[in-house]
Design a protein around this nucleic acid. Structure first.
Lengths: 200, 200
DNA sequence: AGGGATTCGATACGCGCGTATCGATACGAA
DNA sequence: TTCGTATCGATACGCGCGTATCGAATCCCT
């Protein structure tokens, strides 16, 4: 037997397999056996990388968060006006909403983990920290846009950040349920952002 | 053995027990044994009322929806100006957001079922129909308020209804995660409603 | 009054779960 | 070359799940 394997890449493989299963079948579809099979490794290998299932779930959630962050960074970099705070704001919020199959899968998995976090303090702490980071970013973008006159000076940036996140989350759920198309949801988000720009 | 029992009240007992378990421990805490024990009946009794677990889940979701509807009706009736469409609108949206322990329990359970519905077509259809009804009600209220001049005439009532539902859902999740207090979330909702009233 | 149909709840069953165990295997040091 | 050791994956284990089964208990009808 090989005395040495690349643990990091194996962990990534396993996390990817676990994420795929959760996005397709929910958390109850993420069994150790199925994760191992999907990743093409033995159950023992999974156990060695993740001592318990809960640690694996934490890694999956963190990986999802990193992927969303990376996508947002990419969108901002590709934007014609990457330095504008309002541009970054729009791309950040649009980036957390599902609009194609990969991002739909992300949203399904996110929903599954959110439900689990509601009764599992460990996961709740992880997810909460990620929301905290997102809220801080959006607050910062709002303040920056405010300073350059692109957002109404009387807006409560902290509150508006949470309201925008809530709207994006809620719209994402409507998309998941098939009650709204990604395009129309995005249009609603943009309309909401527009009301922050113009003086009331 | 009693040849006849009150099936309706037993069904209600079981549904109440199942709901309590879901709200406390998530869907995975809703096992047939625990539901039976909590309802004070035997497992066989549960099986006779609900041939399968899935039918039980559907009943729980429908019961939750009825309870929310009843609460909204109560709020509207108790309001000082019950006939005003804007009053009904505010109470309807506020009524689906959690603000005390019973409604927090409702939101936790709702989240659990939403996650399950994402991978279970049967439940998805039930939940979707309920959202449809809610969206229609809110659209109607918006149109009525529009007709009496309480809401901007240029508002897209269908779109705004979904946006308001999305905001209320998202804010409810923030409350569940402990990132917002019910009061501050309600204030955000009211602020959003206010922007629909004034001419832009 | 008594027998047959019916409904009760306890228990059995098969399965899949997360985790623990362990012999087989491949390498580095002597 | 050979032995000790570290690491591999297959398999065992205990448990709790949803569901099926079944003898006991009850009531209606003749």
């Amino acid at each position: 037997m090989p005395r040495q394997v690349d643990y990091d890449s194996r962990r990534r493989q396993i996390v990817a397999a676990a994420f795929a299963l959760v996005s397709e079948q929910g958390l109850e579809g993420m069994t150790m056996r199925d994760v191992a099979a999907r990743a093409g490794v033995s159950v023992g290998a999974v156990q060695r990388c993740f001592p318990s299932k809960e640690e694996m779930m934490v890694s999956v959630v963190e990986d999802m968060n990193e992927r969303v962050s990376a996508r947002i960074r990419g969108r901002i970099a590709d934007s014609p006006d990457p330095d504008s705070a309002t541009t970054m704001l729009q791309h950040t919020l649009a980036g957390i909403m599902p609009h194609d199959e990969p991002t739909l899968a992300e949203s399904r998995a996110w929903l599954a983990f959110a439900a689990h976090a509601a009764v599992t303090p460990t996961l709740a702490a992880v997810q909460r920290k990620q929301y905290e980071g997102l809220a801080e970013l959006i607050t910062l973008l709002l303040r920056t846009a405010q300073a350059s006159g692109d957002v109404r000076p009387d807006a409560d940036t902290d509150g508006e950040a949470d309201a925008l996140i809530a709207l994006a989350d809620g719209l994402g759920m409507q998309i998941l349920m098939g009650r709204r198309t990604p395009d129309s949801a995005l249009a609603m988000l943009d309309r909401r952002l527009a009301t922050l720009r113009a003086a009331q």
